[in-house]
Amino acid sequence: MYYVKQLLVAMIVLFGGNQMVQAHAIWIESNPMGIKNQSHTIRIYYGEYASGEIEKTKDWYSDLSQLKLNLVNPDNQAELKLTDKGDYLEASFVPVQEGVYQIFVSHPAKELGGTTRYEFLAQSHIQVGKGTAYSAVPLSAHFIFQNKVFKTNDQVEIQLLRGNSPVANEEILVMSPKGWSKSYKTDHQGKIKAEAIWPGTYVIENSHMADQSGNWNDKTYSKNWQGLTASFQVK
């Protein structure tokens, strides 16, 4: 099966004293175009995407292998059953109507990194047929960009929202399939315009660290890190 890589990249930054001890990412691979009444497969990997390093699921950090994959279709929301394949988690569903199907993950890691709570947010979408029925992603932060396959040299407009409000003056990191990456600063409308220089999958990421106190799994934290990712395809 041909998979178009859609990445869910969320960096785990853990400190033992003042030393960084781990930095890995999770990503989703799925064809962004689906066919009505045909099974559609989704895979979730963990490792270092840029270097092609994929961790066995038994070695995934904390409880990440227990994450939940959610699907929002034009009518309702459902959790997709994940199967452990050793190198990745896999799920599938059969779209029964045309429209835009949203895939998302919202997973706070069970373990703290020092006194920081880490929360992983990611979104993706699958276009089925020509239907335009569209459901919003139920995430506390999310990206908005055109639901299409872009062409090389296109300017891709991306907007960052937290809740329903645009987020100004925040960085969005855009990573290309060729190893090139660039950090952009959002304008007063929470928007950037990214260059689509090469064909392939581009990953966009926003990391947000907030001073926030609370109790998580019987441990006290003083900061909350939230990583949000999505991807778009260029041909």
Score class of each variant (00 low, 15 high):
Pro32Met: 13
Pro95Asp: 00
Ile126Arg: 11
Tyr118Arg: 06
Ser124Thr: 12
Ala50Phe: 14
Phe120Lys: 04
Val96Asp: 07
Gln102Asp: 10
Ala109Glu: 08
Val72Cys: 11
Thr132Arg: 08
Leu71Pro: 13
Leu139Met: 08
Ser106Glu: 01
Ile126Ala: 15
Phe104Tyr: 14
Ile42Gln: 00
Val137Gln: 10
Asn31Gly: 09
Gly34Asp: 11
Ser65Leu: 05
Tyr118Ser: 15
Thr132Pro: 00
Val72Gln: 12
Thr41Val: 04
Ser124Cys: 11
Lys130Asn: 09
Lys58Ile: 01
Asn70Val: 02
Asp84Met: 00
Gly131Ala: 12
Thr115Ala: 07
Asn73Lys: 14
Glu48Lys: 02
Glu79Phe: 03
Asn147Thr: 11
Leu82Trp: 00
Gly129Gln: 06
Ala78Val: 04
Ile144Arg: 07
Ser30Leu: 09
Gly113Tyr: 05
Leu71Asn: 04
Phe143Ala: 08
Asp87Ile: 03
Glu55Arg: 12
Pro108Ala: 12
Ser65Met: 10
Ala136Arg: 02
Pro108Phe: 07
Asn73Asp: 14
Leu67Asn: 02
Val72Ala: 15
Gln123Ala: 02
Leu64Cys: 15
Asn147Lys: 14
Gln97Asn: 13
Ser51Glu: 13
Lys110Cys: 11
Phe93Trp: 04
Phe145Lys: 07
Ser135Phe: 05
Ala122Thr: 06
Ser140Leu: 05
Gly129Cys: 00
Gly86Thr: 02
Phe120Gly: 04
Asn73Gln: 02
Ile42Trp: 06
Lys110Thr: 01
Tyr118Gln: 14
His40Val: 06
Lys148Glu: 11
His107Tyr: 15
Lys85Glu: 13
Ser106Gln: 13
Arg43Gln: 05
Met33Val: 14
Leu112Gly: 06
Ser65Val: 03
Arg117Trp: 04
Ala141Cys: 08
Pro95Leu: 05
Leu67Ala: 06
Ile103Gln: 02
Glu90Thr: 00
Glu119Trp: 12
Val128Tyr: 09
Ala141Ser: 14
Thr115Ser: 15
Thr57Glu: 05
Ile144Leu: 15
Tyr118Ile: 03
Ser92Thr: 08
Tyr45Ile: 00
Ser135Glu: 00
Ala109Pro: 09
Ala78Cys: 12
Ala109Asn: 13
Pro108Gly: 10
Gly114Lys: 14
Gly86Tyr: 01
Glu79Leu: 15
Ser51Gly: 11
Phe104Gly: 04
Ile126Leu: 15
Gln127Glu: 10
Glu79Lys: 08
Val105Trp: 15
Leu80Ser: 08
Pro32Asp: 03
Ser140Glu: 10
Ile35His: 11
Tyr46Ser: 11
Gly34Ser: 14
Lys148Cys: 04
Pro32Ser: 09
Ala133Ser: 04
Val105Phe: 09
Ser39Trp: 02
Tyr46Lys: 08
